[in-house]
Design a protein around this nucleic acid. Structure first.
Lengths: 118, 118
DNA sequence: CGGGATCCACGACGATACTG
DNA sequence: CAGTATCGTCGTGGATCCCG
């Protein structure tokens, strides 16, 4: 169990919207709650809130509250959160290659058999 | 959504037991079903089967069936599956460091404040 | 030995309405 | 604007028993 700390990182990344949120925060720098909502239209407020709270709990994102009316809250990636990006980047690259892999696998499998025959 | 292919890799890794299974298969090379069960005692047959099937479906592990009584089935990581290991390894390393990060965060936060004062 | 079939608990996810 | 509260759905994970 604890021989495999990969789960620790996995736990933090797991969540339907977390990678996308991190992706946009990584590009946009600091973003307001409503900005994130506009950028990811399909997400509900509840989900956006909960996912952000989890990321905040793990010290991946920072939540800056401006006490004013109307309220203003800004989210940004913490310095510590930056250390996750190499992983996300690797996963992203692998994901792209995986799509190609699937195409090769299901398009012309007879070709593959030919190669294996050698 | 499809701007973020990290989900593709994530989907394949997600599953309560997949990282542990991959970890052991990565070390043990080829392992029988019962070997995996012994190595991961808390897992049920159903879970071990389903998680292995998913990994097999994604071409991460290979399933070799020996037609005999009693049955014998061996699992191993495919060549393609090997390409996932850099990611898992990164996640593992990050996970270990994260534990330290948490300790620093919750053990002596006054020390942290001292440092920030400089 | 290596599963499959069934049933069930629980937590993630989501729709909707309300609020300081 | 940036949430919270409530309720409902659905899928993952798990316990248990059966099978070739």
């Amino acid at each position: 169990m604890d021989e495999c700390k990969a789960n620790t990182a996995l736990d933090i990344l797991i969540g339907k919207w977390k990678p996308i949120i991190l992706y946009h925060l990584g590009r946009g720098g600091t973003m307001r709650f409503s900005e994130l909502q506009k950028t990811i239209p399909e997400i509900t407020k509840k989900m956006l809130t909960s996912q952000l709270r989890e990321l905040e709990y793990h010290d991946i994102v920072h939540r800056e509250i401006y006490m004013q009316i109307p309220p203003k809250v800004e989210y940004s990636i913490t310095e510590y959160g930056q250390t996750l990006f190499p992983i996300i980047s690797l996963m992203h690259d692998w994901g792209e290659k995986h799509v190609v892999h699937l195409e090769e696998k299901y398009s012309n499998n007879d070709d593959a058999l030919q190669e294996n025959a050698n």
